[in-house]
Design a protein around this nucleic acid. Structure first.
Length: 578
RNA sequence: GCGCCCGUAGCUCAGUUGGAUAGAGUGCGUGGCUACGAACCACGAGGUCGGGAGUUCGAAUCUCUCCGGGCGCGCCA
């Protein structure tokens, strides 16, 4: 609809130019938008304001000129010049007839577009350490990332989703250690469990599996292992890891670590699947080390002069590419840093031919953006090919108190618990209703105990209600053929409100994709549901004359379609009944 | 100290590539089921858009400054 109006305006401006009354050369772009207020018509443009400033004439006078040169169109009932010089368009019923027909004809794909022009995009999100189950903080990233992927696809971006499994490095060693210590307890040893190790219940489960499958194969005296540890937490953990490696040898260590990693990745995959989040690719950090990609990356950067040695460590010259300072990639002890594998990972992503890399990170990683951009630049690529979207934390509240969360201490509310208590639909909608950079208060009591107040039910209810209307028709044996409907008969206020909302949907999706803001779709569903509920309460659909009935049901059916389409982009179900 | 994010109704939040009279949900008050689902609808009260200055036809939106909150600034991940 906007497109048609815009082209009419362009034609008018061209005629004015031909008459020598105007020059739009180098003029800034003008806007054509759906109006916020009904009094301003259905669609408005600021074209006269923009051009008047450019050529130095009066906006209202120019607006009149433009209106006079508009070619006739069946879509437009009338125009108005308002305020400082806006041109307001009031649409004719023909426009609504075409809209309903279009929704009917395009069905599930109504709202989709090709503004992405097939650009290849990789969206990486969640990517948590497999050192424990996902918690509600990951849930926000999962809900946001998945909705973003769906929105981008709808907008014509060739989009893939990816989970980067951080299964290499010190945290994974701590995981192995934690399992082993619990295992030693099962072997009858008395272990003073160290503070820095993972204490969650799931560690016991994995240790039990280890004990069941391997018997006493990894059993060593706890007294020796725990003997005279340094009091400092990290130093103590590191020493314990060293001792563990001595005790169980390389094979035992990797056996235990892999058992834990495999179990936890499987758990995360299952959890996300139940949350409605599917990834195209699960990419293992460890695979970068095992395959030698990491070493090749280091050699390549060294050869191209981007690395230098200082204090026995190897540094990346990220400050050459806009970062605040240089960063270590290989530590003095020979171990690579997390940053090193991340460089290799992003190199791999670029090699896979994506035009745009999108990383969704938690707010605690935002300081990392500069160095990652530097990496892209060092690889001779435009840093704008990497977009890092930062998701703020969700602060949890229970009983009015803020809940402290820590993976190591095992004190956190898991995504699974949230899903089981409030449901995946409610949780996802709740998350995606907030824009990602907004700090979010997640009131668990509210989400759990009053889940019916969750706005998702409001939207789903509208969909279910519509389905119920059509069930009623079937039960009463009323035969309807919506192809015979004439939506031009729709003239009630509530009907026009609904039509206006339906016509906005493609723009909403495009805007959500352009700005990486799926929450716009969520807000749209609420507005559309509101329009429908208001209509439902004001006018009967079934108990009326046939030509009205057909017209109204065609509108209601279109509404059902758009509600379903929008909810699908959010990963929320559109139930037939509830 | 430096950097990034945030500050809008009692509460939770939209609106920010400059547009017309700043919105929604929730809470509070009033009213509506003998028609298709009341998990709904209608009406009402509620605001110095954190404070101040600037840019211009026009600022919640852009610039500067101050205040308040979150996060980051490691040879951790």
């Amino acid at each position: 609809m906007l497109k048609e109006i815009r082209s009419l305006l362009s034609i008018a401006i061209s005629s004015l130019e031909e008459e020598g009354k105007l020059s739009s050369k180098n003029a800034p772009a003008f806007r054509v938008d759906h109006t916020r207020q009904k009094g301003h018509g259905d669609i408005a443009s600021n074209v006269a304001l923009v051009l008047a400033k450019h050529v130095g004439t009066s906006p209202r006078g120019l607006a009149e000129q433009v209106v006079q040169h508009l070619p006739p169109s069946p879509l437009i009932e009338r125009t108005e010049i308002a305020g400082p010089g806006f041109i307001n368009f009031f649409l004719a019923s023909e426009a609504w007839v075409r809209l309903v027909q279009e929704i009917r004809a395009t069905g599930d794909s109504y709202g989709s577009s090709n503004i992405g022009t097939g650009e290849r995009v990789l969206v990486e999100f969640v990517s948590s350490n497999p050192t424990g189950p996902l918690h509600v903080g990951h849930g926000r990233g999962a809900a946001y990332g998945d909705a973003l992927v769906r929105v981008l696809r709808a907008a014509g971006y060739d989009t893939e989703s990816e989970y980067y499994i951080n299964d290499a490095g010190r945290q994974m060693d701590i995981l192995a250690l934690s399992i082993w210590l619990r295992y030693l307890e099962l072997c009858g040893e008395t272990v003073h469990f160290p503070e820095g190790a993972y204490r969650g219940d799931y560690i016991f489960d994995i240790a039990a599996t280890l004990h069941r499958e391997d018997g006493a194969a990894h059993h060593h005296s706890a007294a020796e292992v725990m003997d005279s540890l340094p009091t400092e937490i990290d130093a103590g953990i590191d020493l314990l890891i060293d001792r563990m490696k001595e005790c169980v040898q390389k094979n035992g260590f990797s056996r235990i670590q892999d058992l834990g990693s495999t179990a936890l990745v499987a758990d995360i995959q299952e959890d996300l699947a139940h949350f409605g989040v599917e990834f195209d690719t699960w990419f293992s950090e460890k695979s970068l080390v095992v395959s030698g990609t990491l070493d090749r990356m280091v050699a390549k950067l060294r050869d191209s002069g981007h690395l230098y040695e200082k204090d026995d460590a190897w540094w990346f010259r990220s400050s050459d590419f806009g970062d605040e300072k240089d960063r270590v990639v290989v530590r003095a002890n020979g171990n690579h840093t997390y940053f090193a594998t991340d460089i290799a990972y992003h190199m791999d992503k670029l090699d896979r031919g994506f035009d745009q890399l999108i990383n969704i990170w938690g707010a605690d990683h935002h300081g990392y953006i500069g160095r990652m951009k530097a990496v892209i630049a060092a690889l001779n690529r435009d840093p704008d090919h990497l977009t890092v979207l930062v998701v703020q934390f969700a602060a949890l509240y229970r009983g009015g108190e803020r809940v402290a969360m820590s993976t190591r201490s095992g004190e956190f509310v898991t995504l699974r618990e949230l899903r089981q208590e409030v449901g995946a639909d409610a949780a996802r909608f709740f998350y995606v209703l907030r824009k990602p950079e907004q700090h979010m208060d997640f009131d668990l009591d509210l989400a759990k105990s009053q889940s019916n107040d969750n706005p998702v039910y409001y939207v789903q209810y509208a969909h279910a209600r519509i389905c119920s209307v059509f069930r009623q028709l079937a039960e009463r044996g009323i035969d309807i053929d919506l192809r015979k409907a004439d939506p031009g008969l729709l003239i009630e206020d509530q009907e026009l409100d609904l039509l206006r909302s339906l016509s906005r949907y493609p723009e909403v999706v495009a805007q959500a994709a352009r700005n990486y803001e799926p929450h716009q779709v969520a807000y749209f569903t609420r507005e559309l549901a509101n329009d429908f509920h208001a209509y439902y309460n004001a006018h009967p659909f079934i108990a009326t004359e046939e030509h009205w009935r057909l017209a109204r049901l065609s509108l209601v059916d279109a509404t059902r379609q758009v509600l379903a389409n929008a909810l699908r982009l959010l990963g929320v179900s559109a139930p037939q009944s509830m």
